[in-house]
C-alpha cells in the first residue's frame, strides 16, 4: 500500500462539563480544540507540550478509553466511535499504551507473568500453555528473562518495570503504541536503554509510535514527525527537520529557547557571557 495510514484524527474535540453545585451554571472546559493529524505505519509521531496542553486527554481518546466529544478517529481506515458501539476485541488489540510512571502502571499484586498473560486471556482464544509461551517470549524480547516470570513488580527497578509495561503493551501484537512520556521518570542511563529497546522493537514488529513527551532532546532523537500542542490546539505540525530547523509558531520558539542544552559551545557561550 502506498498510503499506509494507521491512525487518522479529524478535528477531534474533547469537552469536560463541570457544574458548580446542583443549580450552578455549567462550565464547558475544552481540553482539545479540534486536533487533526495522520500517522503512517512504522513511523513515530512525537506530541510535544507542557502540562495542561491536552496531550494526556489525547492519549485517552487514542487508546479508546474515553470518547471524543466530536470529530472522527480512524484506525487502519476504519472509523471508530466508542460512545456508539462496543469495541471489538480485535480493535482493542490494535492500540496499546505505555505510561510515564513505571511505579504506578503495574498492579502491585500481580505477578509479571500474569501482567503479560492477562491481555491474552481476555482478548484471544489461546490455551494457557500458549499464553505462557507467548508471555515468556515477550519477556525475552524486552530484555528480561524467564526467571522473572513469577516475580512481583516491586522487585524490579524503574527501567525493568518499564520493560514489563512495554511487554504488556506488545503482547497483543498491536499496530499502534501510544507512549505517554515513557522515559521521563527514568534515570538518564536507563532512559537510553529504553529508547534503544523501543527503536529495536519498532524495527522488528514494524510498529507505529505516538510518542508524547515534554523533553525536546528525546523527541529530536526519536521522532519522524513532530506535533506541538498548546492549550488544546496544534500550533506546529511537520517533519522533525521542519519543526526543529525552522519553527514557525512563537510558542515553539519559546519552548526551544527554554530547553536547557548540554553542548559544549553552549556552555562556552554562557561562561563567556557571565564574565
Amino acid at each position: 500500500m502506498a498510503d499506509d495510514i494507521i491512525l487518522e484524527a479529524r478535528n477531534l474535540v474533547r469537552e469536560y462539563r463541570t457544574k458548580e453545585g446542583i443549580f450552578g451554571k455549567e462550565h464547558v472546559n475544552r481540553a482539545l480544540k479540534g486536533i487533526s493529524f495522520s500517522l503512517e505505519r512504522g513511523k513515530t509521531l512525537a506530541v510535544v507540550g507542557e502540562s495542561g496542553c491536552g496531550k494526556s486527554t489525547l492519549a485517552r481518546i487514542l487508546t479508546l478509553i474515553d470518547p471524543a466529544t466530536s470529530g472522527e478517529l480512524l484506525i487502519e481506515g476504519n472509523p471508530i466511535d466508542i460512545s456508539k458501539e462496543k469495541l471489538s476485541k480485535d480493535m482493542r488489540s490494535k492500540v496499546q499504551i505505555v505510561f510515564q510512571n513505571p511505579y504506578g502502571s503495574l498492579n502491585p499484586r500481580q505477578r509479571v507473568g500474569d501482567v503479560l498473560t492477562e491481555p491474552l486471556m481476555i482478548n484471544t482464544t489461546m490455551s494457557p500453555a500458549e499464553r505462557r509461551d507467548k508471555a515468556m517470549e515477550m519477556l525475552v524480547k524486552v530484555g528480561l528473562g524467564p526467571e522473572h516470570f513469577n516475580r512481583y513488580p516491586h522487585m524490579f527497578s524503574g527501567g525493568q518495570r518499564q520493560r514489563i509495561a512495554i511487554g504488556r503493551a506488545l503482547v497483543l501484537n498491536p499496530s499502534l503504541l501510544i507512549l505517554d512520556e515513557p522515559v521521563s521518570a527514568l534515570d538518564l542511563s536507563v532512559q537510553a536503554q529504553i529508547l534503544n529497546l523501543l527503536a529495536d522493537l519498532q524495527d522488528e514488529f514494524n510498529l507505529t509510535y505516538l510518542f508524547i513527551s515534554h523533553d525536546l532532546s528525546v523527541v529530536r532523537y526519536i521522532a519522524d514527525k513532530v506535533m506541538v500542542m498548546y492549550f488544546g490546539e496544534v500550533v506546529e505540525y511537520g517533519t522533525r527537520d521542519e519543526v526543529f530547523g525552522n519553527p514557525q509558531h512563537e510558542y515553539t520558539q519559546t519552548l526551544f529557547n527554554a530547553t536547557p542544552q548540554a553542548d559544549i559551545a553552549h556552555i562556552k557561550a554562557r561562561l563567556a557571557a557571565s564574565n
Binding site: 527497578s157 524503574g158 542511563s189 532512559q191
Partner: peptide, 27 residues
C-alpha cells in the same frame, strides 16, 4: 554524557552498561 540523546551519534544510544559499570539494578 554519551547517553544524552542530543549527543547521539548513529542509531543507538550508548548506555552506562556499555562502560562496564554494573547493571541496570543501579537505577
Amino acid at each position: 554524557l554519551s547517553a544524552l540523546p542530543e549527543n547521539a551519534t548513529g542509531d543507538r544510544l550508548p548506555t552506562v552498561s556499555d562502560f562496564h559499570l554494573g547493571d541496570e539494578g543501579a537505577a
